[in-house]
Amino acid sequence: MSKENSKPKLKMAVYWGAACGGCCVSVLDVHEKLFDVTANADLVFWPIALDTKYADVEAMEDDYIDITLFNGAVRNSENEHMAKLLRQKTRILVAYGSCAHMGGIPGLGNFSSKEAILKQVYLESSSTINPGPVYPETRHEVKEGVLSLPEFYNDVRTLDQTVDVDYYMPGCPPQTERLLEVFMAIVNGSELPPKGSVIGALDKGQCDECERKKSDNKHIREFKRPFEIEDDGETCFLEQGIICMGPATRGGCGCRCIEGNAPCRGCYGPPDDVPDPGAKMMSAVATMIDSDDPDEIEEIVSQIADPAGTFYRFSLPGSILRRKINTDI
């Protein structure tokens, strides 16, 4: 460390729970700005990039780490253990990305159950031969000792259903520019927003940010899948009969999907005043259906093939109902 840079460096950790790895890569996506990051912070734990072990984290004092970006949902006992351990060792714990924030894509596992998933994977999938049948065991004794595996949970959980969370940074993955802004704000000692805030995103909704042409009265008589229309590239997706999560989604992502001519899928989660993204979508979409005839309404609604999976694609574990209640219905 050079003399003029005498400010103590921040200690930062990045960890993944049930995640795809994209969030960790989004951190790498700072490209040459990585030098700004490393000039101001020491990365003390980051499994995708550094060979630090869990034992090294366990050896740290409490609150040793200034900021941890925890990405991924909590799916098994290892994720839970690490969430608790990092909570204990960290001053500012950030739920980073859709999975830690609301459950994300792994959260779609809440449409199923532990039993059904294990059965599918270890018994029924066509490439599996398992006459035992043998299922993963959390503990297995061999002559050399005991082998262990984390326990797979029935429920996928969000980070804040597991430990206390200071901030949420949404996105699948969060936009790297937003991460840099937040990071530099912390480095420069700016006043941080109140605990529990969503950071690195806007308060307003996606539709306010979207530049496509919108009329005040949307009249939808038919819902379609994107491949069924010839998108004109400028009219609101909903007005073309395509489900777009804009009305129930927070802005701040830079409308990347929409600019790529794909409807919003809702990875930034709902704005502050929306408790449940799906409920908001049901409300919004119902307002747009252009029919007063009960049979016709039923017919139009039936064109939305999978409301649960579409409206809660990134947010099932964090939603009001959280999971499928009865897997037999």
């Binding site: 799906g278 119902a286 309404i297 609604v301 939305i304 409301p307 109902l321 499928k324 219905i329």
Partner: peptide, 16 residues
């Protein structure tokens, strides 16, 4: 009425 039909469909998917 429109919300009702959507909700019905949704809660059925949720195993209710």
């Amino acid at each position: 009425l429109r919300r009702y039909h959507l909700l019905k469909k949704y809660i059925k998917q949720m195993g209710i």
